[in-house]
Structures are given as C-alpha cells and as structure tokens.
Design a protein around this nucleic acid. Sequence first.
DNA 1: TTACTATATTCGAATCTATGAATATTATAA
DNA 2: TTATAATATTCATAGATTCGAATATAGTAA
Lengths: 112, 112
Amino acid sequence: MDKLIFQRHAEVCQTLANPVRLEILSLLRAGEKGVGELAELAELSQANVSQHLSNLRSKGLVSTRREGTHIYYCIANPKIIRACDLIREVLVEQATEHAELVGATLAPRSRR
Amino acid sequence: MDKLIFQRHAEVCQTLANPVRLEILSLLRAGEKGVGELAELAELSQANVSQHLSNLRSKGLVSTRREGTHIYYCIANPKIIRACDLIREVLVEQATEHAELVGATLAPRSRR
DNA sequence: TTACTATATTCGAATCTATGAATATTATAA
DNA sequence: TTATAATATTCATAGATTCGAATATAGTAA
C-alpha cells in the first residue's frame, strides 16, 4: 500500500547512492561551503560538483545562500546526516562481523 | 579522503534506491517472511521479488533462514530501519514545509 | 558597455539498472 | 526414480545515470 512514498523515498536514496554526493555531504558537515571550495576539497571539476549539487538540491538535501557571485551550500536537514551515520554504522558492524569470522578461522584458539 | 568508504556507502544506498526493495524491507518490519508471501503482499512476481531479495542479501541488508523448501528473510540490522525512518521523516518535513508555503500564499491571515 | 569570476546547464557516449520470460536449482514427497 | 513446490538465476531489452567537454548564465568591477 502507498507505493508513492516508496517511490519518493527511493528517489532520495538514489541521490545518496553516489560516492561523490556522499563526500559532498560529508564535507558540508563542518558548515556551508562554496562550489569551488567543494570542488577543490573533493578534487573534482567545478562542473561535476555543480551537477551533483544540483541533484542534491533538487531532492531538498542541501540548501543554498547567495553572496555576490558565490553560492554557499549547506545541509538542509540534520536527519540526513544521521541517516548516513546509521548506514556507516551498519557497514562498520558488517566489517567487524566479517573480521570475527576470519579471526575464528585463522586462530580458533582466540575464540572466547 | 578515504573514498572507499563513500563507495561502499553508495552501494548500500543504491540497494535502498528502489521502491520495491523499500517495500520489501517495510514488509519485513513485522518479522520474517517467505519469498512467496512477500510476492503476494507486494503484488509482484516471485522471480522479481527473488531478484530484489538477492540484491538486498548481497549487501547484507537481509539475512535468511531455511526451513525445508521455504526460505525466510528478515532484516539483518535494525539500524537499516532507523535510517529508512529518518529519511521518511525528512520527506514528511519537506511536505510540511511545502504545505506551509502553499498555505501562506493561499491564506496569509492564518500565518502566526 | 566590456571583462572577469563563479556557477549552472546541455549534450553525447559509456555504463549501469529493472523487468519479464525462460530456465535452473533445491528440498520434499510419492 | 519421478513429480512437485519454492526459490534462484540467466538473458535480452528498455530506460536511467555518470562523466567530460563545451557552452551558458549571473554578478561584479572597470
């Protein structure tokens, strides 16, 4: 039921499903930044960063503030960061579980 | 720095970036379910549900338990659900903000 | 106006993704 | 063994995404 919300949710996740955009969001954790600054920090072209920012903005994940010819981007909702953090935690836990399995196989005497 | 973690994070988000898979995860909130059961609840073909489950499983988002010829799927880590809930909250807040803007335009006297 | 800087957009090729259809596998029962 | 039910996989096509390159726009200063 209500497939529409799943569709919209999927669209947001699609925007999060790109390593460059995740890096941009991560860079914006410390506060707003301009396009050129982001491009330099991520070592990417201005055009490419702008494309990704456009994507993030279209899904409402970042917002902008203009100051003269500069445009500063910031994270629109801190819950986005929390969601990213949770997924990171899942990845860390997966890695930990995997390491435990490997350890149990290579050095079973260390178990418990 | 550490672009690899962004890559892996993006891969998980890519798996979450599909309305069918989000619906499957949502159905699994209530507890483990078999493939056929999921297919019926989501009104999708068995093959398609199985394909999506394979995707979810390959990213470690669901785990399985076999019982005879049936295979039951469940959510591998509750943090995945919390991450999804946060994104939903962002969507709700976006909708609320949008509604407020529309309301302010159509009926400004209701403001404050 | 012209020039310059910052940012955005368009376009095309390569790559990736989702689906249905068909087929394969696995476990159980007869 | 054969048959059957549950699930998984392969394949081909249609559609979406990414990137660099080129171009366009917006703001400011001279």
